[in-house]
Amino acid sequence: MLPFLPIDVADPVERLEAIRQRMTGHKARGEAQAENSLLALAGRFPFAPIAWSLRLLARFPQRTVAALVTNVPGPRDRLTVRGRTVTELLPATPIAMRLRTAIAVLSYAGQLTFGITGDFDTTPDIAVLAEGIEREIRRLRQRAEIRRPSRPEVSGP
């Protein structure tokens, strides 16, 4: 069972608090742990029966799952590769079966990056989704009176 997003809450700070409460309730009821237990159990069975089961489950309508959003905590400190600073990490989430839109939120060195993956045939307006995310984060920042920190300078040849 996935928690529903409170899209009916107009104020961005109140909406964020409602999401936090719903996710806390979801975790407290043990639903997330049950999902993890099911995945762990699947790792103990032969591949073929698991694959058949997943194919069977994929045939059931998933009308309530329109998109998936996941957050991935990344490194807090800047990384370097061969003496050069990594300026940005880009998240990518695969789509499959009836899940045709996925959003990954990755933190890295105090910044968040959103990666949106979508199937053009079923979601041709991904740009509208990206613009909506940008607009709502801007509203949240304004409402919470948070100023955007300047990006650190990156050195290198």
Rank of each mutant, 00 (worst) to 15 (best):
I19P: 04
P61L: 08
M97S: 15
F4Q: 03
R20C: 11
E88R: 08
R135N: 14
P124D: 05
Q33F: 06
V13I: 12
L99G: 04
R147V: 02
A104P: 07
G118H: 07
R82T: 12
L68T: 02
S155H: 03
P73E: 11
L39P: 01
G118V: 12
L90Q: 11
E17T: 13
R135W: 15
R63W: 03
A34P: 13
P61W: 01
R98L: 09
A109S: 03
A67V: 12
G74F: 00
T85S: 02
G110K: 03
P6I: 02
R63S: 09
V13C: 08
A40Y: 11
P49G: 01
T117I: 07
L54N: 13
R20N: 04
A127S: 14
P91M: 01
T123E: 04
P91Q: 06
R20F: 11
A92Y: 15
R141Y: 07
V128E: 04
I95H: 11
T113R: 03
S150H: 03
L90N: 09
E131C: 06
L2S: 04
L5S: 07
F47S: 02
P152F: 14
A28L: 02
I50D: 00
T87C: 02
K27F: 14
L57E: 01
S150P: 02
S107Q: 00
G83Q: 10
I7K: 02
R55Q: 06
F114L: 09
E14H: 12
L2V: 05
M97K: 13
A92C: 15
R29W: 14
I133R: 07
P46L: 01
I50E: 05
R63D: 04
A102V: 00
A144R: 07
L54E: 12
V72T: 06
G118L: 13
T85V: 03
D121Q: 03
A34Q: 15
L79H: 06
D121I: 01
P75W: 04
A96I: 13
L2D: 00
F114P: 05
W52K: 00
G43T: 14
R15I: 06
L90C: 09
Q62C: 13
N71F: 08
S37H: 13
R59D: 10
A127G: 14
Q33S: 03
M1H: 09
Q33W: 07
T87R: 05
P124I: 05
G110R: 07
E153K: 04
E136F: 15
R76G: 10
G115K: 11
L99C: 08
E131F: 02
T85G: 08
A51N: 14
L140G: 08
L2G: 02
L54F: 12
A42Q: 09
A67M: 14
I133V: 13
L38S: 13
R147E: 11
A28C: 06
F45C: 04
R100Q: 06
R29A: 15
R84E: 10
L129M: 00
R138I: 15
A96C: 12
V86C: 03
V69S: 12
W52S: 05
T93W: 00
V105A: 03
E31W: 14
F60A: 13
F120V: 14
N71K: 06
Q62D: 14
F45E: 00
M1F: 07
R63V: 09
L56K: 02
P94G: 08
E14Y: 10
I146R: 08
